[in-house]
Nucleic acid binder design. Structure first.
Lengths: 188, 188
DNA sequence: CCTACCGATCGGTAGG
DNA sequence: CCTACCGATCGGTAGG
């Protein structure tokens, strides 16, 4: 791993733990065992690290869900696979995912706006799947947008409790979340 | 509204918008139209504001859900009412709720620990309802803790999109969320 | 509620 | 990658 990658990974962990604003370059340097000024031999600015993490994660989520999508499949199958892909990316990048979810607001323009439009586009992918399921009669939801947000909420809360050494594997998490979202808790 | 309350409300809005760390006392003073030093006539420290907001919201959530709970009712009814109470508090305090959800980590000890144990206790209330529903045969879930976290995720994501002028009222939101959590999206 | 100010820390640069 | 340092800003205090 290059020093640059090491800086980004360490910074990501700190950004998740303390938040972007509360993380100083001296905190980061301390964690790396070097002086703060030395970091600037490898990166241009503190925000550059945040940009890299946010946009890399956006790309990872896109690629993972695109790779498993097949337009001719049922909405149920498409949603199941999209959830599994999202959970996989998230559990493999817990810290970067948290930064992607909560620290993007510290991006300056034009990064802030372009990040938001990427995120909207990603949500639209899920919204499209759910809408097509409603149209085909597979799904029945109060409101497509509301249902999409609820699915996302379940997906995006995972990083708050997931631990690699926990009893649930990523694919079990995906399976359970899909079950909850499709069938609910009621015992029929 | 007293000046002190005005300071807390303005700070809450800034803490939500920019995050606790990125909000300076000068930002706050500017928003209030006074000098930063003047704020200290009313409050002791920046963190004191955060403490007030976090613990006040914890109390509000507890009181609201306790008030509607009845141990002899069915788990379905208890969960329905708890969700409605939570959504009501959240939609009536969108900014304070966001601070409650994301900024508590900037609390110093012993506030940090005691906040976390309050939050655990609150989650335990929901977990208890879901567990009793599983025991009575009303619910069927992959895992009680997982189901509780998923319900919470839906509850706690609301503040990211809720707008008082939006088309969904708080009670409709609660109704729709309850429907999704109990029945899922599948069209039976 | 203001002026005047404090020591500490911030992100970052120059020069080696 | 370090030493030495910059101007800006931080939370907060003294004194009125």
């Amino acid at each position: 791993m290059s020093r640059k990658e090491q800086i980004e990974e360490t910074a990501t962990a700190l950004f998740k733990a303390k938040g972007y604003s509360a993380t100083s370059m001296r905190d980061l340097a301390n964690e790396l065992g070097i002086e703060a000024a030395s970091i600037y031999s490898h990166i241009k600015s503190k925000e550059e690290i945040l940009q890299k993490v946010c946009f890399r994660m956006a790309r990872e989520f896109f690629e993972a869900t695109d790779a498993v999508d097949s337009p001719q499949a049922s909405a149920t199958e498409r949603l199941t696979k999209a959830i599994a892909a999202h959970v996989k990316v998230m559990t493999q990048n817990t810290e970067a995912s948290a930064v992607f979810l909560y620290e993007w607001r510290h991006l300056s323009e034009p990064y802030h706006s372009s990040f938001l439009s990427l995120r909207d586009k990603y949500e639209a992918h899920f919204r499209g799947i759910i809408r097509s399921g409603v149209e085909s009669g597979e799904f029945k939801v109060p409101d497509v947008k509301f249902a999409t947000m609820t699915v996302f909420s379940g997906l995006n809360w995972i990083h708050t409790w997931y631990k690699p050494e926990g009893k649930m594997t990523p694919s079990e998490i995906a399976e359970n979340l899909t079950y909850m979202m499709l069938n609910g808790m009621k015992n029929n």
